Simulated assay, not measured.
Amino acid sequence: MRWLSVCIIMFFGFQTSFSQNIQGRWIGKVTQTPGGYSELYDLELELTQRKTIWGESYAFEGDSVRIRFGLSGYIAKDSIHLSESLGWIREDKVPFSWVACVKQFVLAYRKEGSFEYLEGRWNGVGTDDLSKPCFPGKVILSRTIEGLNNFLEDHKDSLVVTEPMLIANINPPIPNFSPIFLNTEPKKITEIVVTQPDLQIQIVDYMKVDNDTVSVYLNRNLLAKNIRIAKRPALLNFKLDTRLELHEILLYAENLGQVPPNTSELILIDGENRHRVMIVSDKEKTAAVYLRYKPKKKNK
């Protein structure tokens, strides 16, 4: 999924208390680790609490992603356990190549001044195959928008801004395309001319799934760590530094799978253009794809 401009990467200690009922509406964010469809979703929970908990979860991003499940749960000591149910799908609207996750949450209640929060983690499985785990993530929920905004502002040092930040130095960086990378030799597979700075990579297994795992680097900077190559594509969104013409994408083999070498198909989405590249990496050579940025000239 497309994400908002900030992604929560750190949560804080809980002051646990269940003296107050958690029934009602909660609004917040749910993250997903690199390799998932996106990094941050909007999330709403509507909870009813008696001896057990039941209600509805609603994850969304604009009009392109709308996922609504019925859920149930319980409280055990200091943890709130909530589980969405595949049998209670109320809405499942995602882009064609995506699959919704049936999520399980483990949350804790915290009160900070007048603000109430539920924080914790989630994991889940795809609706198309319950044996396929989703990339997990974290959750922050508040009773109010004011409380949520207060959390994001107070903890801005623990947020990653995914929108490009202003660069004070007008001089472009000098890329390091040295012939050795993590004790391997970068091997050029192809060079692709791109016209957009905002790009997406999809990585998918084009042969038998055998637990290949790769890490992806842009200009020798880590984009995503330990992506398991599967039939369901892993999606990475990134932005080019427009001061540079040539950029390097490396797919480093973290392992060779059950049948060496490490193989995958990389799909680069540049606006309306799609480029497919077959990738082969091993412990001696790392596949390198070069992107040459040439923006379209504006009509006068």
Rank of each mutant, 00 (worst) to 15 (best):
L199A: 02
M207I: 14
K93V: 12
N176Y: 11
D128W: 10
D92K: 12
I174W: 06
N171T: 11
E185I: 15
G113E: 10
N221P: 01
E191I: 00
L159I: 05
R143E: 04
V94N: 03
I180H: 09
T195D: 07
P95T: 06
G113P: 08
K138F: 12
K132Q: 13
N171Y: 13
T195M: 11
D205N: 12
L159V: 03
L166W: 12
T213H: 03
N149I: 01
H155V: 01
D128C: 11
E146L: 06
N150Y: 10
I140V: 14
K103T: 03
T144F: 00
N150K: 09
Q200S: 14
I189F: 03
Y109V: 08
L159D: 04
D205V: 06
E185D: 08
S114R: 07
G147A: 06
S142N: 08
G137Y: 02
E146Q: 14
A108F: 08
V193T: 15
P172N: 09
K188Q: 11
M165E: 10
P133W: 05
N169F: 07
A224Q: 03
E116I: 00
I145M: 14
C101L: 02
L118M: 08
M165D: 07
K132V: 15
P136W: 05
L152M: 10
R110H: 13
V106N: 09
Y109L: 04
G124I: 04
E163L: 13
D129V: 05
Y206H: 15
E91A: 07
L166H: 11
Y206P: 03
V216P: 01
G120C: 03
K132P: 00
T195E: 14
Y217N: 04
T127G: 08
S215M: 04
G113H: 02
L118E: 04
L141R: 00
P186R: 01
P179I: 04
E112L: 07
G113I: 00
T144M: 03
R110M: 10
E91C: 13
I170E: 15
D198P: 00
T144N: 05
E153G: 04
L159F: 02
R143N: 03
V94C: 06
I189H: 04
Q200Y: 07
G124D: 02
P136C: 07
N150Q: 10
D205H: 05
V194T: 10
K156V: 06
V102D: 01
I170T: 11
L166P: 06
V204G: 01
I201N: 03
M165P: 00
N221G: 08
P164Y: 07
K188D: 09
G120M: 08
L141Y: 01
K132M: 15
K188P: 01
P173F: 07
D128F: 14
T195V: 08
L107S: 00
D154W: 06
K156N: 12
I201S: 06
E185V: 15
A108H: 15
K225A: 09
R143V: 02
V160G: 08
Q200W: 03
I167D: 13
P186K: 05
T213P: 00
K208N: 08
P175N: 04
L118P: 02
L118F: 08
N176L: 13
R220G: 01
K111N: 07
V139L: 11
T184R: 09
F115G: 00
K156M: 08
N176E: 14
P95Y: 02
I192F: 00
V94D: 06
E163M: 10
L222W: 05
